[in-house]
């Protein structure tokens, strides 16, 4: 069986790629894509721990999988709201470059 650490390293790498995308891209949609990558990395961790670490004496339960389902639901809601915000910003300011959208910067 594949060691748990392989999955954890894969998820850590994917999370850091997503973090870099969210921090370093100029396009607001690309920033949102980075956040989606990070959520995927978290889901890999949840499923890997569900598969490898037994929480209780019960034969097996599905807590990890159900958590992953809720994370996917939240990601869908987050993507819809985030993209609506980006389209609203584009309508009012004609740009999706996050460096031009600094109205709330102190």
């Amino acid at each position: 069986m594949i060691p748990l650490q392989y999955y954890l390293l894969l998820a850590a790498a994917l999370f850091c790629i997503g973090l870099f995308t969210a921090l370093a891209r100029r396009n607001a949609v690309a920033v949102l894509m980075g956040i989606e990558l990070m959520l995927n990395a978290v889901n890999i961790n949840l499923i890997a721990f569900w598969r490898y670490v037994k929480p209780s004496a019960a034969v097996w339960d599905l807590t990890g999988q159900i958590f992953a389902l809720f994370v996917i639901t939240l990601a869908a809601a987050e993507a819809a709201i985030g993209l609506a915000l980006i389209i609203a910003i584009y309508r009012s300011r004609d740009t999706v470059n996050i460096e031009d959208v600094d109205l709330m910067k102190w």
Binding site: L14, I17, T21
Partner: peptide, 10 residues
């Protein structure tokens, strides 16, 4: 596939 795709996204 996952990591290659992620790096390309970045």
């Amino acid at each position: 596939i996952t990591l290659f795709g992620g790096i390309l996204v970045a």
